[in-house]
Amino acid sequence: MNGETISADELSIRLTAIASAQRMRIIALLSGEKLHVSELARRVGMSRALLYMHLTKLEEAGFVAGHLELSDDGKALKYFEVVPFTLTIDPAALVAAVAATPATTESENP
């Protein structure tokens, strides 16, 4: 996402991951600081289970990263933070993504 050429399939996965107002809000909140899941869930006003679904999609697409840290009382807390990225969508980026994608036949990709 930082200037490398990716396939159309990879670009589609990344665009799908970020094409949600809730996930954009999660990225916005994490852009200023790393937060543990419970705090992030409070700030976005959703259950931890739903938040984990969004975080998983963002992490798989490379927008955020999660890691465990021990609190002072010995509890394991899962923290998330934004991974620096640049996402440029313009005709040139789309042409490059399509060019980087192996050709498929119609029967493979209906």
Rank of each mutant, 00 (worst) to 15 (best):
K57A: 13
D90M: 03
L94F: 11
I13Q: 14
L70G: 13
A99L: 15
A96S: 14
V98G: 14
S107G: 15
E33L: 07
F63D: 00
L30C: 03
S12E: 08
S20Q: 12
V82K: 07
V64C: 01
E39T: 14
V95P: 04
A17D: 00
P84V: 10
T101I: 03
P84Y: 07
L51M: 06
F80L: 02
E69H: 09
A76D: 09
M1D: 03
A97S: 07
P102N: 02
R23N: 08
L70Q: 12
G45C: 05
D9V: 14
S47D: 11
R25L: 14
Y52A: 12
P91N: 11
T101N: 04
T16Y: 11
D73E: 09
R23L: 04
T105F: 14
A28L: 09
E106M: 08
D73G: 03
A99W: 11
A103I: 10
M53Q: 14
V98R: 05
A17L: 06
L94C: 08
K34E: 15
M1W: 12
V82D: 01
K34F: 10
A103Q: 08
A92V: 15
M53H: 15
E33S: 10
K78E: 05
V83W: 02
Y52C: 12
D73H: 08
I13R: 03
G45F: 06
L77T: 05
Y79G: 00
F80V: 05
L94W: 10
L30H: 01
T104G: 12
M24D: 13
V95W: 11
K57C: 08
E106Q: 12
G32W: 12
P110V: 03
V98S: 11
K78P: 00
A28W: 09
A41S: 09
L70D: 13
L68S: 13
A17T: 00
L77C: 04
S38G: 05
E60Y: 03
F63M: 01
P91M: 10
F85D: 01
G62R: 00
T56R: 14
G62E: 05
L55R: 01
F85Q: 04
S12R: 11
L11H: 05
T5C: 03
T88I: 08
A49E: 13
M53T: 09
S107K: 08
M24I: 13
T16A: 15
I89Y: 05
L40Y: 12
I13L: 14
R43Q: 12
A8Y: 03
L15I: 09
L51E: 02
A21T: 15
G62W: 03
V37N: 07
V44M: 13
L15E: 02
M1Q: 09
S20K: 13
K78C: 06
E106P: 02
V82I: 10
E108I: 07
V82T: 10
P91W: 11
L68A: 11
L11M: 10
R14S: 02
K57G: 01
A97W: 04
M53V: 15
L58Y: 00
R23Y: 01
T104E: 12
P110T: 02
I27T: 04
S47Y: 07
S20Y: 06
V95R: 07
A100G: 02
L29A: 04
Y52I: 11
I89L: 15
G45Y: 08
A65W: 00
L40T: 00
D9Y: 15
E108S: 13
I18Q: 01
